[in-house]
Amino acid sequence: MPKTGFLYDERYLLHITSSYHPEVPDRLKAIYKGIKDAGLLPNLKLIQACKADMRWIEMMHQKYYIQRFKQMCDAGVAQMDTPDCQMCAETFEIALLAVGGILDVGRMVMEGEIDNAFCAVRPPGHHAEHDRAMGFCYFANVAILAKYLQTEWGIEKVGIIDFDVHHGNGTQNMFNDDPSVFYYSVHEHPSFAFPGTGRELEKGVGAGQGTTRNFPVLPGQGDKEYLKIMQEDWGPAFEKFNPDIIIVSTGFDAHEDDDMSGINLTTQGFSQIMKLIVQMADSLTDGKLISILEGGYALKRLPELAKNHVEILMKKD
């Protein structure tokens, strides 16, 4: 059985949006509850957050943007760049803790302390751009981890699979011309869903042409279409790229009970997708896989989805 890490910290609950915002602390509480109530905690390596060293964040974000983010939080400004990105005085510090926790998980995987992990962090990251906040995201958690693994640990090729229902524009843009990071995203078609990017024709630029791949899915297509894409397109694409580690942008918002989208994945569908990803990690990366939470807003469904997700990482079934 692989050693699975679980990054969770109550301080992640201190990033407050507003009562009517979907990206709320209750999401993490629901995820934690699901994992705890299933009795999984004793068999997980529990990881607490720590603050990220600013140099890693500066590798992916403009310095002025980072300063601006900090100053706005210090001044108590309640939103940044767009009304979607609501925050509180603590948000900057919590975002630093999210990145820091994730990088620590990266270190533990590289040192062999754990094989894989689920990082239940807030705020999410895949919409955050180099110089602006977007879609509930401030720091590009996944992109920063990829860069950290390459820079600090000499990882050559990073494979990112993003199955959040929204396209991860930020992650894509950060590695658009970089052939050493494969960004693969399956998401609701951009004509029907935020952020309006992630069309098939976006395939990377320059040296990075071919190491960005987008698979937009039409509304209502459900498990069958997602699984077909994962098996027939994502699998061969990742085998060909042959990454040294797999990072997963895990969004639970394609679920049929999540009102943020219209894709209609079932709970079983999520499990099947995650099993394929874990199998891929076994065959390509010696099991090295780090899953990082992005979206997912159906509070009633999150406990079970998170529990299943972690059980698959632990290979409990």
């Binding site: 979907p22 009304p83 979607d84 929204h166 029907f192 935020f194 509304p219 209502g220 009102d259 943020m260």
Partner: peptide, 21 residues
Amino acid sequence: TNNPARIKKKLERLGYSLINP
């Protein structure tokens, strides 16, 4: 926005029908 759910519900409360995408 990335948060259309509330607006959708509000429009439905106002009696509008949303068209299946």
